[in-house]
Design a protein around this nucleic acid. Structure first.
Lengths: 277, 277
DNA sequence: CAGATCCATGCCTTCAGGGTATCAATGCGT
DNA sequence: ACGCATTGATACCCTGAAGGCATGGATCTG
């Protein structure tokens, strides 16, 4: 049931050498062993990894894919073990998640100044799973936009920002300085939740090519500025609240410290998210 | 030497239950087995994962870290196996890498229209390893900026873009419409290569807070537009070439098809990267 | 056609992984 | 304070997977 990393390593060696004998030699095992292990791996995965012509070996499509997956997998393992050792040596880490368009560097730098020993990692949050990384521990603290699922989380509202409509420059409404929801009736609104694409850029590409328009928080629009798009405030749309979020049961020093610094930074910061230039 | 995923799964169960007996039960193994496996895991990793008080079990810092790593690791494994199966079933995939600021969606959509069966994945390239993913197979095709290490790659120049200087709005030079390299002498230039941070946002944050300025390709500056920054063309800086890149030995249908479509798209596209609005 | 090369199969050995029985230590109730 | 229950660790045994060696079957080459 569990994938065997040893077999996987054998497979990688075989894929690289393209030759059972030499691969086995490089692995310091006998050739028949390798032969059987690869067969076992194919059986476990349920698909052939290479075509054998008693004379040589060639990867199948699945085999090439597995070779690729193995690369990232071993890299993931190595990085993970390294982080475990770092944790063991007492190295502190703090993962700060942030939704697209929210600027966190100011707080991060302020915190880094107070706690130089803590390794800080920034984790861009997908719009379709803003909250999950906080709940499952992938992030220690996050900058999110409401609404999101707040169960199991503690959140502090730190600001709000207006919504804007993103339109192609050629759109009739693009000449208006501001818009209302009523004026957008009848427009094709691209719902972000329709597709879980890896990037929001695609949505804006669609808008640019005239497939529809979108209503998004101001800072999101700012993050994807393009010469062929414009954004206009939607005056009667509800503002979007931005907040600082941590797991409800997190009582760790570095998290509390960050919260303290971050909210302080916020207080003295000349730039408020709610301010529109 | 190889991390054992079975032991890791055992550890996760133990970490969740906080109790050898119940964890063993949930794993359908005997408690002594679990006890030994966990000890073995600790020995292999070289660090204690939990503090045992004959009465209960508590994770160490390293233990918590490992629990977290295990989550992403198992997710990686699952996703990898899924992709291998997809490849086996004949599902075609095409990973398109792109450097920050380069827009690929137009070509991607054109290609998707011609080859609807190919799963397309977008991979944002880090500025400090633009080319590596193409060489090692993580990406099939990429939109890159010169210069990069072209060994083992084939590239087609598809455009060029000017460089601009990014300055705080408050900077004296910000009032100028354009600048020359000579005028930037004496300024503190933030070299991108100094730190391999996970995002370029931090650099712009530094610029905004007056720590220096940067000279970057126009499209990069456009990607990180902020109200507190301006960018001005540097008239005598060399233009940056953008190109479409594939591995030298890639002869696969979907890659060649994409190249054909992408260059065609480029030819008819009204927007050229070299055009400055 | 004979020899060389290469992968697969059969058989034996070793050892990690799993089970049962039991011990030692710590809480907890009386 | 003492006895009992609970929990993790240890001892010992068994099974099966991993590895080695010998060899077979197939294909390429001179």
């Amino acid at each position: 049931m569990d994938l065997d990393l040893r077999k996987l390593r054998y497979f990688v060696a075989l894929a690289e050498h393209g030759h059972f004998g030499r691969a086995a030699e490089s692995l310091y095992i006998a050739q028949p062993v390798l032969s059987r292990q690869i067969r076992a791996l194919e059986r476990e995965l349920g698909c052939p990894l290479l075509t054998r012509t008693t004379r040589s070996v060639q990867l199948t499509t699945a085999g090439r894919q597995l070779q690729e997956e193995a690369r990232v997998l071993f890299a993931t393992v190595d990085a993970g073990i390294r982080r475990v050792h770092e944790a063991d040596r007492g190295v502190q880490r703090l993962v700060v998640g942030f939704a697209t368009g929210l600027h966190v560097s100011q707080a991060v730098r302020a915190y880094a100044a107070t706690s130089p020993d803590v390794q800080i990692e920034l984790l861009p949050l997908k719009w379709w799973e803003q909250d999950a990384p906080l709940r499952d521990g992938r992030a220690d603290v996050g900058y999110l936009r409401r609404p999101f699922d707040e169960t199991g989380l503690r959140s502090v509202t730190i600001g709000s920002e207006p919504k804007v409509a993103c339109l192609p420059v050629t759109h009739p409404l693009a000449r208006r300085r501001s818009l209302t929801l009523a004026e957008l009736e009848g427009e094709r609104i691209l719902d972000a939740h329709a597709r879980r694409t890896s990037s929001a850029e695609e949505k804006f590409e669609l808008i640019a090519s005239g497939d529809g328009i979108a209503v998004v928080p101001l800072s999101v629009a700012r993050s994807y500025l393009r010469p062929d798009l414009v954004h206009r405030p939607v005056t009667d749309a509800e503002d979007v609240e931005t907040c600082l979020v941590v797991a409800r049961d997190s009582r760790e020093r570095r998290v509390l410290d960050f919260l303290a610094v971050a909210t302080r930074t916020l207080g003295t910061a000349p730039v408020r998210l709610s301010a529109v230039d």
